[in-house]
Amino acid sequence: MNPYNPIIALLVFFGVVLVLFLIFKPKNGLFFKYQKVRKENEKTAIEDILKLLYHDANISKSTIFNELDFSQNLLLESIETMMDSGLIKKEKELFSLTKDGHEYALRIIRAHRLWEKYLSEKTGFHKEEWHKRAELKEHELSGEEVDDLSTLLGNPRYDPHGDPIPTKAGKIHEKKGILLSDLPVFNFGKIIHIEDEPIAVYKQILEKNIHLDSQVYMKETSKNRLVFESEGEQFILSPIVANNITVISLDKADVVEKDTMRLSNLESNQKAIIIGISKECRGENRRRLLDLGFVKGATVSIDLLNPLGDPKAFLIKGTAIALRKDQAVKILITKR
């Protein structure tokens, strides 16, 4: 008379959980698929084609199909619309941007890079997520919103990866650099850009704690690996990974960070002078560290070690301030 049975109850429960899981599963759950379909409209496709052509001029239809994750029909329609409205031109089956198309592409790139800058300065999203989120947001922001965003951020010149942000007028100051793998042995360079695509390679760079704007000294180059020093640490990268890093070569005279190391490597009973905070430390985190007295020229030493190793307490301007390791690696010092 009573339909209750604990086994059936459990089965019903797991059934419900399974359905919820299928709907909200990260990446390919139904909910996210629905979101993706909704986003897959002509505007997005056009803007993505524009960006693609901005970076690689003169590419064929099949390359576009390969590079972009849209249905072929949508891409074909979009290309047609773009030809009609004079955003792209076709020569010998190869597409490239017209002047109008170039301007449009720069507007999208401006929105993308400003949004990445915004995410890096004003939110707590992890670096890995910036690009993905900006890819979505760039299609949503209106021209006015982009300008407001720029004002809010203080009209930044570079995005957090070191890429220049186009101005409102469409000017862009591309930095001329060389790939890290092309930096000759026993030469100094400075990292000006870390590419965030493909994400797998970018993740490897992030894991190694290689920082934008840091100086590098190349120790060894071979087919299989590059060995270089930066901020007092030694890094070994495969050339494929190193190709995601752009540097400018430095004269010996410009090398200022020869004896630089990271605060995380300071040992007890040593004293050091702070040289600065790495560009990788951004937004509110950077402000806090500065306010706490981690400024150029300040003396720092280790005050206390923690039973679990992290964080460490540093004596700075008369006060013990505990910092976690991921903060200490971003503070540059030189031993006294």
Partner: peptide
């Protein structure tokens, strides 16, 4: 849900 909130750390040992 909270991954976008700003996260900082500092701890003064008075």
């Amino acid at each position: 849900v909270l991954k976008g909130e700003v996260s900082t750390f500092n701890l003064e040992l008075p």
